[in-house]
Amino acid sequence: MTTAQVIVLAGPSGSGKSRLAERLGLPVLRLDDFYKDVGDPTLPLITDGANAGLVDWDHPDSWLCDDALAAIEHLCLHGQGDVPVYDIPTSTRTGRQNLDLHGEAYFVAEGIFAQEVVPRAREAGLLADALCVTQRPAVTFWRRLTRDLREHRKPPLVLVRRGFALMRAQRGVVAHAVSLGCRPMTPVKAAAEIAQMTGHSIR
């Protein structure tokens, strides 16, 4: 029997998932912390374009879906659990930390591959809702680029090239999330719906 259910926030990188998750006042599981470490031989590579030969961190094969699902299930069943801590600039896992739901009936799981957990989480009875946060591609591009440059996530030229590629791919990213069971909406609408469901005030 579960003690909590998960609200999944999917959406393109830079769409505002993390900011929204912080404003909800609920415990947050950062699904980007389940990336594989750099040097893992199973990491996918970009096959064409200016960044050909570099790791394709926007491909779901760069991410540990089974580990993320196991963490979600453990949190739903036990209300707390150890989760990884990942450093994106160095592309390495740096440790683990305890995530405690403190008795909350809901928690948020957000990340660029969040949609991948939706079908199995729903089948297991763990899912409260699944939303795909989306904004206009130009807005998402600028938010993503300024964030990634500020956090020194990757070299600037790589970030700019990646940004344009992701802007072109945004419609497909949203369509994929919808195909896996997410409902697309703006951050404002998503915040209102989650607040109504959980009874939490938006910060």
Rank of each mutant, 00 (worst) to 15 (best):
M1S: 11
T3S: 05
T3N: 00
Q5T: 13
V6R: 01
V6Q: 03
I7T: 09
I7G: 01
V8L: 10
V8H: 03
S15N: 07
G16Y: 04
S18W: 00
A21E: 05
E22K: 15
R23W: 01
R23P: 00
G25Y: 04
G25N: 05
P27W: 11
L31H: 07
L31A: 11
Y35T: 02
Y35W: 07
K36H: 13
K36V: 07
D40H: 13
P44D: 03
I46N: 06
N51M: 14
N51F: 10
L54G: 09
D56V: 02
D56M: 06
W57I: 00
W57K: 02
H59E: 07
D61Y: 10
D61L: 13
L64Y: 11
C65H: 08
D66Q: 11
D67S: 12
L69R: 10
A70P: 03
L75R: 05
C76K: 02
H78R: 10
Q80F: 13
V85C: 07
Y86T: 00
D87M: 04
I88T: 07
T90W: 11
S91V: 04
T92C: 12
R96G: 01
L101T: 01
A105N: 12
Y106N: 09
E110C: 00
E110K: 00
Q115H: 15
Q115F: 14
V117N: 03
V117E: 03
P119K: 02
R120Y: 01
A121L: 06
A121Q: 04
R122M: 04
R122D: 02
E123T: 11
E123C: 01
A124S: 12
L126K: 03
L126P: 00
A128Q: 08
D129P: 05
L131S: 09
L131P: 08
L131W: 13
V133F: 01
R136C: 02
T140E: 02
T140A: 09
T140C: 12
R143I: 00
R144D: 00
R144H: 05
R147Y: 06
D148F: 01
R150S: 12
H152V: 13
R153M: 05
P155E: 10
L157V: 12
V158W: 13
R162F: 06
G163E: 04
F164H: 15
L166F: 06
M167F: 02
A169N: 12
A169Y: 12
A169H: 13
G172Y: 09
V173K: 08
V173D: 12
V174H: 02
V174C: 04
V174G: 02
V174P: 01
A175P: 08
V178A: 07
S179Q: 13
P184A: 10
M185K: 08
M185D: 07
P187V: 06
K189E: 15
K189F: 12
A190K: 01
A192R: 15
A192M: 14
E193D: 13
A195G: 15
H200T: 13
S201L: 14
S201M: 12
I202Y: 10
